[in-house]
Amino acid sequence: MKSPHTGTAEKIGADGAAVSAVDFGLKGPRGWAFRGVDFAAPAGSFVAIEGVSGSGRTCLLLALTGRMRATEGHAEVGGLRLPKKMAAVRRVSALGPVTGVNELDPAFTVAEHLRERALLQSRLDGGLRALFQRPARRRAAARARIDAAMESAGLDLESLPKGARTSVRDLERLEALRLSVGLALMGSPRLLAVDDADLKLSDAEREHAWELLRSVAACGTTVLAVCSEPPQDALRLCVRNATKDGESAAPAESVTFAKSAEAVDPMDSTADTTDEGTTEEGAADALAETGRS
């Protein structure tokens, strides 16, 4: 399998977006999904959002990319303030795989996913003018965009069982992750968000996944990745479940090993003092309300 190529990634990449949050929180009908998030990461950072399943990691990821509306505090992505500028943040950010929000269609082939995304991106980039381009020119532009994205994601289509005609359901977990990241990179986002980045990966596969996300960040795109076992060189944000009685869980230690970090403070998630439920319940409700926005 090919390794990500830095030169090509720079062609399709964009200047990364600095990300920060102050007392950032989101409350669902039955409790807080997350609360009290304070951190700052410079542009081009690789940020690992760490925590157990149900701790509000995915909701935090979606809120920081403008897909969920926070109810407390604020955040900024590339100078765009959340929750006020959600639409603008969505335009400069892209989602990798997020269960229930941005999943690959298992019935599609790899080629079908790539053609669909290339067509969509050409419409977004070129507007109505893209419709009047010569077919040969459109195909060449789409092919160049696809090749650059797949090389950046380290996915060699020829190595797949049926090449580009391989169905998504037949992809290995790491291959599917590479495809999702490649599709997201076709829009040259300033911020890339990936959920469950290390889910169901072996130790060797997990290291390949970190290598992929490091390479994306090294080319300038800021990366937010939800994971269970973060790499030591990432900026680490730890999310903990809130307790049912409203007291905050013991604060998780947030550690940075990256020299470019400005500040990374502990994220102390607390529950509401009423019996509205745990963080896991609040996160589930908030995510259900979000849908596929």
Rank of each mutant, 00 (worst) to 15 (best):
T99L: 01
G277A: 00
I12F: 10
D203V: 14
K11G: 04
T58A: 03
E76G: 03
R134C: 02
E253D: 02
C219L: 04
R206S: 05
R190H: 07
A43W: 03
S260H: 14
A17W: 06
W32E: 08
S180E: 00
L82R: 09
L235T: 15
K11V: 12
P42M: 05
T99V: 05
F46S: 00
D265E: 13
F39H: 03
S269T: 13
G56I: 12
A193N: 05
R91H: 13
F132Y: 09
R169H: 14
A107V: 14
T221H: 10
E158S: 15
G36A: 06
P83I: 10
D125I: 12
A88E: 15
G54M: 07
E247G: 10
A63D: 01
A197I: 10
A87R: 15
Q232N: 10
R81N: 06
D170L: 09
P231T: 12
I49M: 05
A142V: 00
R138G: 00
D203F: 07
L199M: 11
C227H: 07
G163S: 06
L62V: 05
D272S: 03
P251A: 11
I146P: 07
A193G: 02
S45I: 04
S254Q: 01
A217W: 03
R134Q: 11
L237P: 08
D272L: 04
A48N: 07
A43Y: 02
M86P: 05
V255K: 01
P231M: 12
S93W: 10
L64G: 15
V216A: 05
R169W: 06
H5Q: 13
T222E: 02
A153Y: 04
A204E: 06
E76T: 14
V37A: 08
V19L: 01
D125T: 13
P189L: 01
G126L: 13
